[in-house]
């Protein structure tokens, strides 16, 4: 039995890959793993309630489509990570901010000089 979060991720993956709204049956076929229809249906409904999926009627069933592309969510996270340097919050802790091109070039030079020295000594 996969973890709940994994299943959410797998369902979103399926719908993003399809590029169009899917029926729960179609999602189930894509996700596979021998899951019960009801399990997939429940998690899909939860994703809809959380705002990840849109829902439209198709005959007697519903089709679920992605509310936004995967790229948009990733871009949102990356923007948050890159703006960590502003003093607003310490929710995330980063590795490094940007370096200006001129300065980066100079530092590359200094670093390779130091590496050469280390190799020789």
């Amino acid at each position: 039995m996969p973890k709940f979060g994994d299943l959410e991720s797998a369902i979103m993956e399926q719908i993003w890959r399809a590029g169009r709204p899917l029926l729960v049956r179609e999602v189930l076929e894509g996700v596979g793993r021998g899951l019960a229809y009801n399990t997939v249906h429940t998690v899909t409904e939860i994703l809809h309630r959380k705002g990840w999926l849109t829902k439209e009627r198709d005959g007697r069933a519903f089709r679920y489509g992605a509310a936004a592309g995967r790229d948009k969510y990733v871009a949102g996270l990356v923007t948050e990570a890159l703006s960590l340097t502003d003093d607003r919050s310490a929710a995330l802790v980063g590795f490094v901010e940007g370096i200006r091109p001129e300065e980066a070039e100079e530092l590359h030079r200094l670093l390779s000089a130091a590496r050469n020295k280390e190799v020789r000594s």
């Binding site: 890159l82 502003d86 901010e97 200006r100």
Partner: peptide
Amino acid sequence: PSIALAAGGAGAA
């Protein structure tokens, strides 16, 4: 993005 450069360029270098 410009904010990343403006905020900490010097710090990283």
